[in-house]
Design a protein around this nucleic acid. Structure first.
Lengths: 335, 335
DNA sequence: CTGAAAGCGCTAACAA
DNA sequence: TTGTTAGCGCTTTCAG
């Protein structure tokens, strides 16, 4: 017959009792404090180990207000864009002795709300890629230091880290027009388009086209899910509805690569029949064939900047900053 | 003159005082408990928001012993192998309502020790890619649920999730030999070789070669740092010391891709002059040219399995499990 | 070198 | 519906 009492956790008092010392002394032993007899320390440590004692994070955190935990919300670790941002965040957080908890929304708008809910009561500060307005508000209203990343239309009352898409798109046009392209299509991100946020990128695209005196047809724009497959699918549609385009600018490199590969599979020459420009500057883009021309951004820097802003908020300094990361055109063989 | 008193945190008591209710009522309001007058709740919430009140994670955790935080130690988010594992871990952790804190060692053995130190007093359980024996011991001895990932030589007293490299290498040999290769080189991971752990992979490689009656020359083995560049550098050396090899098996896909590209840049035909086999089955391998033949493993599953084992340990169930993930040969154009 | 007292901020259980 | 009473497990004073 089982006499399993509910397995209460082993506390410092249990160890103290078993050792015949006060709980202070146990605390000294496990924290490597100097004011303790080495022999006593050793004895305590041994017993503690045997009893399976492990200090409670919470009790500790309670009494020393030190450790900061940063929540990092991204769409998907499998999208190679994010690991680079994560690297920047980890680096900057580590420099401050912060812990980083990762949350992913699986690129589903519907999950953002729930993630926001979880985040607010598990971390001290948050840097996040979030599109859903309600989710953004949930975190912002919690009052914790919060930095929104990647949003092009900045809610002015938030601290943000953004990408300068406008200048990027102009660089792309400059480049493509100088190569003689006139009919340029865009493959945009479906999630973004559906997030309800103002459709900034397409707007900028249209505006830039106008600047360069280029025609813009509505069916030269396709939406893609954020992946290589998504890009391929969008390209498939584009080839049907707009075979006349000679260049495609994509929301990001993943989509661009998918689109480019699909075009090649369909027998088009790249860049001869159709040129491709990506956005992000993933390492991946150098490895594919042909290497992808792209508007590169310093993704690591993006992450670092976000952490810096969060830190500033924690410190009460520089309230609502807004870092804008510029793009750099990397011309490769796809254009 | 500044009268800044040290900015003590706003507590539930402060809110209670300002609101003229007991702290319990405040607690009810912020936790959305039913037994409270809606008007009171609203009033409290408003005041709390104004005062910038935010509940203390620690005090909460203290009283409701619920939340579990899992530490995940990986070498480097920028190595595309890890994001897939991370995805599996996040998924499995999320299913259990666990938080995941990420730690990276930057692929530096010397950092493992420090990371181990940090991990043990910030999380409740840990799943880790760790090579350094001392670091492994540090975590294991802490007594927390711990799962070691990726180690080929299993310390029997640990819960582990491993890759079946032996069967993988045999699949590679089978394939290469059937393609007529006899002089096969290996590019191994430098960190692993230098970790002091028994050199299992090279041993298996040698053993497999023997099985197939193939010659093995010491200079057919090169060490590489874990990256595309590292692979390229190793291939450079290999071409100097062993131009006679007709196939190269690499520690992983990143290294294989670097090696393959370097060979092509040097004018070799792939797979005509030299064939390449990778290990991991990264998506990346399908995108490069030529697509990389590889020993694919279910990396996501790896992460999930680790979390499952950690969960089993938390529950006190199934003490020391050992999951072995098998490889699957994906033949593509590089061989 | 060691111990006793005093909380850290919160919620569960019980009273009112 | 609201308030009161007890801790949760630990470290930081301050005395011995």
């Amino acid at each position: 017959m089982s006499t399993t009492n509910k397995p209460r956790r082993v506390t410092i008092d249990d160890v103290a009792r078993s050792t015949g010392v006060s709980r202070q002394t146990v605390s000294r032993a496990i924290n490597d404090k100097p004011e303790i007899d080495p022999a006593t320390r050793q004895r305590i440590l041994t017993v503690a180990q045997e009893m399976g004692y492990r200090p409670s994070r919470f009790a500790r955190g309670m009494v020393r207000q030190s450790t900061t935990t940063l929540g990092l919300v991204i769409a998907d670790v499998l999208n190679p864009f994010f690991p680079e941002v994560v690297a920047g965040v980890l680096e900057a957080a580590d420099a401050r002795g912060w812990q980083v908890v990762i949350y992913t929304t699986a690129s589903e708008l519907s999950r953002e709300q729930k993630v926001a809910e979880t985040v607010v009561d598990h971390v001290d500060a948050c840097v996040a890629f979030l599109l859903d307005a309600a989710a953004i508000a949930r975190v912002a209203d919690s009052g914790m230091p919060f930095v929104l990343m990647g949003n092009e239309d900045r809610p002015v009352e938030l601290s943000t880290v953004r990408i300068d898409f406008a200048s990027g798109i102009r660089q792309a046009f400059d480049h493509l027009v100088s190569r003689g392209h006139r009919r340029i299509a865009m493959i945009d991100d479906r999630n973004r388009a559906e997030s309800g946020a103002p459709d900034v990128r397409s707007g900028l695209f249209t505006a830039a086209a106008a600047e360069y005196g280029l025609p813009v047809e509505p069916h030269w724009r396709q939406l893609a899910t954020n992946s290589v497959q998504g890009g391929a699918a969008a390209m498939e549609r584009l080839l049907e509805t707009a075979p006349e385009v000679t260049a495609v600018v994509s929301y990001n490199d993943m989509i661009a690569i998918g689109a480019m590969r699909h075009a090649m599979a369909r027998g088009l020459a790249v860049p001869g029949d159709c040129a491709f420009v990506g956005f992000d500057g993933l390492t991946l883009g150098e490895l594919v064939d042909p290497p992808l021309t792209t508007l590169s951004i310093d993704k690591r820097r993006l992450g670092q900047a976000a952490v810096e802003q969060a830190a500033a908020q924690m410190a009460g300094t520089g309230a609502m900053a807004d870092t804008v990361v510029r793009t750099e055109l990397m011309v490769r063989a796809s254009t």
